[in-house]
Design a protein around this nucleic acid. Structure first.
Lengths: 234, 234
DNA sequence: TTACCTTTTAACCTTACATTAACAAAATTG
DNA sequence: CAATTTTGTTAATGTAAGGTTAAAAGGTAA
């Protein structure tokens, strides 16, 4: 039923607590990336798309607030939950100022955390995503609408695309005429880079080529060992 | 943009605490209606439009949860904050199930409450711009009046819609020609996203399709794994 | 209570998707 | 060149999601 598991970035320096929490969240059907400090947290944040960030406030090198500010600069929407020490009122207030969605005092009840996560993620889902522009691409004679997942040729023939077909074509379009590295598609779409996912991707490339045959000016070229290139000949 | 003070419905049976809290909120520029029990709370809720409800959980006659349910039947959007006794974990969980936006353990810090209020009201303000009061829709040859819950085709044949049919069609109409995510309908209408609510929704989609068959230009398309799309072909 | 309306659950069937296997064809390497 | 790796392509398979109808369960008012 789920299109994809919701992804959580957990930044927590205490290795024991962090691992336990990660496992608990994973048991509850979330995909969790665990970073052990603020630096690492920001690196991982940049590399991936998350549905929620859970940040410990007290961390060496870079505290949760600083990290939150950096995250907010990149992304104004992703929900943030802070884990603060008990009774640190100032932390709570500071957190809200930085744009937190919620906070939890340690030690906290895990079920309550789960409910908060659910509530926050659902809340975000409710907010209408109306920035349609980034979902529409023109590829030669084709129009790709990657939100509604269809591909039209010359205004007619709307072909439905499967989620993977759609994502892959969208990635190619984002790199039009340029190299779209294999690895990029595998990590972004398949979230795993191994022999099988790689073969699976090749199957999808074949499918896309079939769709794109309608316009002889459009083709997907392979760059051996590197990736693919969506070219539009003029 | 907003010209009126934000209105808060405060339902709290302890007269001392209630009065103090009311005064504090008023000092901070909110317009506060104080009800001393659940009955009175519901009466006042019906008489006015509030931007936020703050409900004590423990109250004689009618507790906060029961009141919240009644409020939710009237209004699926208004934010609700519960005041619960410290350490009553079950209360917190129950609150979220009823559709609470947040909760506070008594005794709580008043500044924290203020921050929460601000955060929640602001959140709703950004959300509610587009889908504000809109109850009448033209869908191809149909007229939907979702306040009176009927659907007319060509001015004739007024079909009565059940509450769920109505809400679902309204959501679809709000997103006409665009994706109406499954998740959105489930969280907004069913308030829960699981296998059964999802199947229930599919049943309603089938019912709506039956009604809409009268106009061959109107159809509900599925986007596998994402949601539905109400399209009007021209 | 019956009667009626609404919603959920169940059942059964169809369609959509992603993965894997299998084999062919290029490209690369030494 | 032969050997190896990478890519191209089609088909088969298993699973999940959606379509539809009917029966069960819940609710409400006469």
């Amino acid at each position: 039923m789920e299109e994809h598991k919701k992804r959580i970035l957990l930044v927590e320096d205490d290795p024991n607590f962090g691992t336990v929490l990660k496992d608990y969240l994973m048991m509850n059907d979330y995909e969790v990336t665990h970073a052990k400090n603020g630096m690492e947290g920001f690196e991982k944040f940049k590399k991936d798309d998350f549905d929620l960030c859970i940040l410990d406030v007290m961390m060496p090198y870079k505290d949760g607030f600083t990290l939150a500010k950096e995250i907010r600069e990149k992304n104004t929407d992703v929900p943030i939950i802070f884990l603060t020490a008990k009774t640190m009122k100032e932390d709570v207030l500071k957190g809200y100022k930085v744009g937190a969605d919620d906070y939890l005092n340690k030690p906290f009840d895990s079920e309550v955390l789960l409910m908060k996560i659910k509530a926050i993620i659902q809340r975000k889902a409710t907010e209408t995503i109306s920035d349609s522009k980034q979902f529409e691409f023109k590829i030669g004679g084709f129009d790709l609408n990657s939100k509604l997942r269809f591909l039209k040729y010359n205004g007619e023939n709307p072909v439905k695309l499967s989620p993977k077909e759609n994502e892959l074509l969208r990635l190619l379009a984002l790199h039009e005429n340029d190299l779209m590295p294999r690895e990029l598609a595998l990590t972004k779409i398949w979230r795993d880079d191994n022999y099988f996912t790689s073969r699976s991707m090749d199957v999808y490339i074949a499918k896309l080529r079939k769709y794109l045959k309608l316009d002889s000016k459009v083709e997907i070229l392979n760059i051996h060992g590197e990736g693919f290139r969506l070219v539009v000949n003029t």
